[in-house]
Design a protein around this nucleic acid. Sequence first.
DNA 1: ATTAGTGCAAAAACTTTGCACGAGC
DNA 2: GCTCGTGCAAAGTTTTTGCACTAAT
Lengths: 151, 151
Amino acid sequence: MHTDVYMSELKDRGYRATGKRRDILEYLLQHNRYISARELIEAMKEKYPTMSLETVYRNLRTMRDEGIIEESRFEDNESKYRIACQTSHHHHYICIACGNTMVIDHCPMPSVGSVPKGFVVLQHRFEVLGYCETCAPKTKAEGMVDEIAKV
Amino acid sequence: MHTDVYMSELKDRGYRATGKRRDILEYLLQHNRYISARELIEAMKEKYPTMSLETVYRNLRTMRDEGIIEESRFEDNESKYRIACQTSHHHHYICIACGNTMVIDHCPMPSVGSVPKGFVVLQHRFEVLGYCETCAPKTKAEGMVDEIAKV
DNA sequence: ATTAGTGCAAAAACTTTGCACGAGC
DNA sequence: GCTCGTGCAAAGTTTTTGCACTAAT
């Protein structure tokens, strides 16, 4: 549904509408959170048993470069991706356990005051990290207090 | 000078005051920016020609876990580190070319409003990314307009 | 038919780990 | 002397790349 809009946008830019690309996109659209390449290939294997991780990476890179998805990194050494929000500009609460995101309807940029002389602003990042309602109890149950302190 | 304070703090916590650890710390203290393990080993090689990258990583991890330095990632796939600011809480303008940082004396947290139900806030990240006064002209000169757009 | 996309294998890049030796306490 | 720190070698992880084949246009 929504996926089609993105796919035709990609087609307009010279990319082809492959099933795998479409399904990666759809998976990202259906899950409102940051997702790793590893999770994606796992999900794709059901439908495409021989699909390779390289294809996932290549498609993620393409879509990131086209501004369709966003890449970020949290506690681990792996990148995670989510659909770039097309709605009005906002930021996210992010669960570092499951990648789940919730909207922060506040942007700090208007309040930062004057930019340093000569500094060219390209981008900004405002993320509030923690555990979501589902993951918070689990971490306590498993005695991950040290983990929490560390992050 | 300042380095000694950190080193004795480390000693208090059971770590040893090795020259290499001290010099990594001093390098970070002298450079007000995000620095990679690669840059650090390069810098250290002058004084310690046989020093290994593993030592750099191990010391960075130790000091990060002790809260002395902060780790972050930007455009590349490598972690960069800087001294954790001990002064009053603030955020940074960060040059994605050289890692240079400048203080943003504004924290968005008081303005975010109510946290989603059950969400446990552990940390927040507010970074304004771009090119500093020194790097901005270079990027233009080299026709890196596409790069700019991409980041 | 042309060219982008894919799987496979391999490599690259970054980071961590096991082990034995050396240095700090 | 005991233990932590270090270098070396090796391995682990994540991500990228070359190449030949397949599939979308």
